[in-house]
Design a protein around this nucleic acid. Structure first.
Length: 432
DNA sequence: TCTGGGGTCCTAGGACCC
DNA sequence: TCTGGGGTCCTAGGACCC
C-alpha cells in the first residue's frame, strides 16, 4: 500500500496479451490451448499465441520455419475487422471506469484513474483489478496491466509480468523495478539514446532516473527529460483523450451553377466529391465498404443508387471506377443536373499495424501513392493534386474563383520533375 | 537484434517580416 | 542598403513508436 502522497496520479496501462492470436482464439474457441500464429498472408509470423511462443515461434519467423518446429501450428491470415472490433470493446470497457482514456494502440490504452481511488491507494488497486477482470472475462483472453503515478511507469508495469500480470509501481518503491530494468527497454528510449546513455554509464532505468536533473536537461532533448521525470514519479505526459472518430458515413455534396447536362462535366463533379470524401476517410483512417451516389436535377428531384465495393477502400480510383457504371445508368441524357453527391458508408478502421499489411502488391502501391498525395495536399493545399476524372470540375471551380487553397506560386514546384520523382508520384494523375 | 512500413513528435535551420 | 534583435512559419531530418 502507498500513501496518496506517493501516488498523486493513478495512471493505468492496459496491454492485450498476444493480441491478434488471442482475438482468433476468442473468436474460435476450438483454438484455445493450441499454438496459433497470425500473418499467413505475409508469409511470416506477426502474432503468436503463448502456446506457439512456448514452442519457439518468434516474431517475423517465416512460415516454413514455423511448420518445421511446430507442425501443429494453426496459421491464420490477419483478420483486421475482428481485431479492431475487439479493440473498440477494450476501450469501451475501460471507459466504464473513467472517461480519461487514451487509445494508444490497437491492443493497448492508458487510463487516468486519479480521483477514483482512496487515500491509501488500495482503491486504485481494486479498480485496476476490476478493470482487468472485466477485460479478461468479457473479451475471452488475458490482459497485462500496470498501475503507477505516470505513463512511463505504468507502461513499465504492464510489461513487467506477462501474460496476465497486474503490476503496481509507486513512486516510493519504484527502484525495485527501475534497477532491474534495462535502460533501452524504457518506453521512449531508442537505439540512439541508448548508445548515448551507456556511454555515460547509465545502464538501467534506475541509473538514468538517478541522473542529475541539470545534466539531463542540458544533454538530452526534451522528450528524455520528460521520461526522466516520469521515471521519478511525476506525471508530465498528458493523456491524449481524443477518441478515434467513428463516422457512420462520410458525405460530400456539391451544387454547381449553372446546371449542366454534360455527362463528362457532371461525372467530373462526382469524381471531385469522391476525392474529397476519400481525403476525409483517410484522415480518419477509415475505409468504406459501400458507396451511394446521388444526382440532383434542376427541378430538385434526385436519383441515387447504392452499391457495395468489391473490397473496402478509401482510394478514389477504385471508387470512381465502380461508380462510373452506376453513374451512367442513373444519368438521363439531355436533363440538366445541378448537384452531385457521394456517401461513403459501412466504414471501418483501416488498421495498419507493425508486421501487418494488407495483401496484394497493387494495393500496397495504391496505399503508398495516396500517402504521397495526402502529403502533397498538406503542403500545397487540398486540391493541389486531383484525378484526371475530376479535371473539369477543378477547372470549373478555378474559373469561378473558387481555387480551394492552392497557392498559385506553388504550381511549378508541384509538378516539377525532381520533386515528382522523389515523392514517387506517377504521371497517372493526368488520366484515370 | 535483424526485418518491415507508416505515423508522430521534436528540433534545428532557413526565409521572411517588423 | 545597412545595422540589430526577435518573432513566425515552414521544412528537413532525427528519433521513436506500434
Amino acid at each position: 500500500m502507498f500513501a496518496i502522497s506517493s501516488f498523486p496520479k493513478a495512471i493505468l496501462h492496459v496491454d492485450g496479451d498476444a493480441f491478434f492470436a488471442s482475438c482468433e482464439q476468442s473468436r474460435h474457441p476450438e483454438l484455445k490451448g493450441k499454438p496459433v500464429v497470425t500473418g499467413k498472408e505475409r508469409g511470416i509470423a506477426s502474432s503468436m499465441s503463448y502456446e506457439a511462443k512456448a514452442r519457439g515461434v518468434t516474431r517475423a519467423m517465416p512460415l516454413f520455419e514455423i511448420r518445421r518446429i511446430c507442425p501443429d501450428a494453426v496459421i491464420l491470415p490477419s483478420d483486421y475487422e475482428t481485431y479492431s472490433l475487439l479493440s473498440r470493446r477494450l476501450y469501451a470497457i475501460v471507459r466504464r471506469y473513467t472517461h480519461a482514456v487514451e487509445e494508444y494502440g490497437i491492443d493497448e490504452c492508458f487510463a487516468d484513474l486519479t480521483g477514483y481511488g482512496n487515500r491509501h491507494g488500495s482503491g486504485y488497486i481494486a479498480l485496476a483489478e476490476k478493470i482487468k477482470h472485466d477485460l479478461d472475462s468479457e473479451l475471452g483472453f488475458t490482459f497485462s496491466v500496470g498501475l503507477a503515478p505516470s505513463k512511463v511507469l505504468a507502461k513499465m508495469g504492464s510489461k513487467w509480468k506477462k501474460p496476465s500480470g497486474l503490476t503496481i509501481i509507486s513512486t516510493r518503491d519504484r527502484w525495485r523495478f527501475l534497477d532491474k530494468y534495462p535502460v533501452e527497454k524504457v518506453w521512449g528510449i531508442g537505439p540512439a539514446t541508448t548508445i548515448f546513455l551507456k556511454r555515460h554509464n547509465f545502464f538501467t532505468a534506475g541509473d538514468f532516473a538517478r541522473a542529475n536533473e541539470w545534466w539531463v536537461k542540458n544533454n538530452l532533448a526534451r522528450p528524455f527529460w520528460e521520461i526522466w521525470q516520469e521515471l521519478n514519479g511525476a506525471s508530465v505526459m498528458p493523456l491524449l483523450l481524443e477518441e478515434k472518430s467513428s463516422y457512420f458515413s462520410i458525405q460530400k455534396f456539391k451544387t454547381f451553377t449553372p446546371p449542366s447536362d454534360s455527362a463528362d462535366f457532371i461525372f467530373s463533379q462526382l469524381s471531385k466529391n469522391i476525392e474529397n470524401a476519400c481525403i476525409k476517410a483517410r484522415r480518419h483512417k477509415l475505409i468504406a465498404g459501400t458507396v451511394a451516389i446521388v444526382l440532383r436535377t434542376q427541378d430538385f428531384r434526385h436519383a441515387g443508387a447504392e452499391f457495395a465495393l468489391s473490397r473496402p477502400t478509401a482510394t478514389p480510383q477504385e471508387i470512381i471506377a465502380a461508380a462510373r457504371d452506376v453513374f451512367y445508368t442513373l444519368l438521363k441524357r439531355g436533363v440538366p443536373y445541378r448537384a452531385t453527391g457521394i456517401v461513403l458508408a459501412n466504414l471501418n478502421p483501416a488498421v495498419i499495424q507493425p508486421d501487418l499489411f494488407t495483401s496484394g502488391a497493387r494495393m500496397q502501391k495504391m496505399v503508398k501513392l495516396y500517402e504521397s498525395v495526402d502529403e502533397l495536399a498538406k503542403k500545397y493545399g487540398k486540391h493541389a493534386i486531383f484525378l484526371g476524372s475530376s479535371f473539369e470540375a477543378q477547372r470549373f471551380g478555378a474559373h469561378l474563383g473558387d481555387r480551394g487553397d492552392i497557392p498559385e506560386r506553388h504550381h511549378d514546384k508541384l509538378f516539377g520533375e525532381t520533386k515528382r520523382k522523389r515523392l514517387g508520384i506517377p504521371m497517372m494523375f493526368a488520366e484515370v
